[in-house]
Design a protein around this nucleic acid. Structure first.
Length: 613
DNA sequence: CTGGGGATGGGGCCC
DNA sequence: AGGGCCCCATCCCCA
């Protein structure tokens, strides 16, 4: 399943002894790559977003996974990848992505010759052995030393990752949902397991050349005799090579079982399973995706030629595809269009904000050129209000809630600067006056810092308790006061009388069984929403809500109906939907006896009974 | 044209 | 972190 287009390419290049030349299309792999690259530039079927500095790149998981073991481990888990900007810049990544999709180092936009040293660093970091080798050759030819670049982070004078883990929280706050997997821990840390699972498939299904390439992928620095730290027989010990790469794989062991052979995916996670389905190459005879759902998601009947032009307008409508329910497909298509109409607002807004807040900032092509018609960039001009307060408070959002669409908009206006609960990145652009260097602001004490690291170091000086007290104090001055509410503690509501709920919200009347839930609830009273969407900037109080929201951006619908192939973003929706097929109507109106498949429709129906109109 | 119902999407929130 | 449920909003179909 992992053997993507590049694996195909390798097969073709490697030649096959059992197949005569008349049975082989010499240009097949080239054409395939060409198509893929075209699709990438159009955003068609792109299923992963890579964020580098302020730029967003869209790509295909299969292609990334096939070209780099690093990407392979990343895209298994995530659809949004945030690359270490210390290791790769957006300009360099642009070249790299082009290389991945074309096999050529295209002349960059830069007037000067591409900086092979930085390219080599990035290639090593991203574990692109062939590109790294190319760079090394060029550097060698130019007589430039490249050892420092090859050793990656260590060579760049950066502290080992384990020492940099303290920044993780800030990074998570800025890019929540990216998690440790993406930022804090290099995915190569999962290599031992990867080698035991997917790579075996890789090796087993490839010819020798493919296996050899993979071997180099496992050991990026190697495979180039006399150049890398590893000898040409590097396949023997990839671990050592990783160390030499400076990718510090020994630090902070990932929360994974030891190198027991087995799949990365947790089989009980439908989302992940689905993601793995996403990774399957279109057209691959994968029984796991043989249902109409996945088939629909792959963009239509396999025998149908892909209509890229049509797809340009709305890739998501293509994703929905003819799933056997034309009406629904149509509806989804229009819905998606409606949705994408909203996105440009947020994005264009972000574009106008400063460097960090704006994913699209300096590099117009980050979206404009790279994904002109993709989910992120489709549609027309801005349609929402500008200049709203950057950090919408709950009340504001709820008061102005004349539609989730609108609240989404306002949310996105405010959210271009990812904000943490206790720390906050304040993007440029909200004020015409520059903030100077202190763009990272600690919310509790309002101190500004020039870097996330410094902010994070500072944040750690605040204790949880202290922060909590400050939040509490803010509410006390704002309304009611906690004291009078505290008195209510003695009078728990009858509804909760059966079960002790000793943890009471200091702001409202709600009580909870455990402090964690209370804490979570208290966040709903905070004026800042800790979890911003990386794509539209909308802020959320809970990480889970944000990641769920992110799914809608990425068009991820992991939960497929076996009956009709419709896909949903949530399990619950699928459960609901399944009643359509089963005919089950468990919700009955006590007034008229009407039965409903969904509770919410019963509720809506009950309103009809109760409302005077 | 209108209202009701079916179905779906997204966010909030609790567990 | 993820599941489950609630809510609101919306679209579509149909009587």
């Amino acid at each position: 399943m992992v053997s993507g287009p590049l694996a195909l390419r390798w097969c073709a290049w490697g030649g096959r002894g059992d197949m005569g030349p008349d049975m082989e299309l010499p240009s097949h792999s080239k054409q395939l790559l060409l198509q893929l690259n075209q699709q990438r530039t159009k955003g068609f079927l792109c299923d992963v977003i890579i964020m580098v500095e302020n730029s967003i790149f869209r790509a295909h998981k299969n292609v990334l996974a096939a070209s780099s073991i690093y990407f392979k481990s990343l895209v298994l888990h995530d659809n949004l990848i945030n690359l270490d900007t210390d290791m790769v810049s957006s300009t360099v990544f642009q070249q790299i992505l082009d290389f991945i999709y074309t096999g050529k180092l295209l002349p960059s936009d830069q007037p000067a010759e591409p900086n092979f040293s930085t390219l080599l660093t990035a290639a090593s970091y991203l574990q692109l052995p062939e590109l790294a080798a190319l760079c090394r050759r060029r550097l060698k030819r130019a007589g430039k030393p490249f050892g420092s670049a090859r050793v990656g982070a260590a060579g760049m004078g950066r502290p080992p990752r384990s020492q940099r883990l303290s920044t993780t929280s800030v990074i998570q706050a800025r890019y929540p949902g990216l998690g440790d997997r993406r930022k804090g821990a290099h995915p190569s840390q999962e290599l031992p397991q990867a080698k035991g699972s997917d790579d075996e498939l890789f090796l087993g299904s490839s010819n020798q050349e493919g296996a050899h390439t993979l071997g180099r992928a496992l050991c990026p620095a190697g495979g180039e005799a006399g150049l890398g730290g590893c000898s040409s027989s590097t396949n023997e010990s990839s671990g050592g090579c990783e160390q030499e790469l400076g990718l510090d794989l020994s630090k902070k062991s990932p929360p994974l079982p030891p190198a027991t052979p087995g799949p990365h995916l947790t089989p009980d996670d439908p989302a992940q399973l689905s993601d793995s389905q996403h990774s399957s190459p279109p057209g691959a005879p994968a029984p796991a995706i043989a249902n109409s759902a996945s088939y629909a998601e792959l963009g239509g009947a396999p025998e149908e030629p892909m209509d890229l032009e049509g797809a340009e307008d709305n890739p998501l409508s293509q994703l929905e595809g003819p799933g056997g329910q034309p009406r629904k497909s149509l509806r989804h298509s229009s819905r998606k269009k409606e949705w994408s109409k909203k996105e440009p607002c947020a994005l264009s807004e972000r574009k106008e904000t400063g460097p960090k807040g704006a994913c699209l900032g300096e590099e117009g092509e980050g979206l404009g050129g790279r994904v002109p018609n993709g989910v992120l960039a489709s549609g027309g001009g801005p349609s929402g209000p500008y200049g709203e307060p950057p950090y919408p408070c709950k009340e504001e959002e709820e008061n102005g809630k004349d539609g989730s669409e609108d609240s989404g908009q306002s949310g996105s206006e405010g959210g271009s600067g990812p904000a943490g609960a206790h720390y906050l990145y304040r993007p440029e652009g909200y004020e015409t006056v520059s903030y100077g260097d202190n763009l990272y602001v600690c919310i509790p004490c309002a101190k500004g810092f020039p870097s996330s690291e410094q902010l994070n170091a500072h944040v750690e000086t605040h204790t949880e308790e202290e922060l909590f007290i400050k939040e509490e104090g803010a509410y006390e001055t704002g309304s009611g006061g906690a004291e009078e509410e505290a008195e209510d503690l003695s009078a728990p509501s009858a509804a909760y009388a059966a079960e002790p709920r000793p943890f009471k919200c200091s702001v409202c009347e709600k009580t909870y069984k455990d402090p964690a839930t209370l804490r979570q609830h208290e966040k709903t009273h905070w004026l800042t929403r800790p979890f911003p969407c990386n794509i539209c900037g909308k802020m959320f109080t809970q990480r889970g809500t944000m990641t769920r929201h992110m799914r809608s951006h990425l068009g991820l619908k992991p939960f497929a109906c076996d009956e009709c192939g419709m896909r949903f973003t949530r399990q619950y929706r699928l459960t609901e939907h399944m009643r359509v097929h089963s005919g089950e109507k468990p919700y009955e109106c006590q007034l008229c006896g009407g039965k409903f498949t969904q509770q919410r429709n019963l509720i809506s129906h009950l309103r009809m009974h109760t409302s005077p109109s």
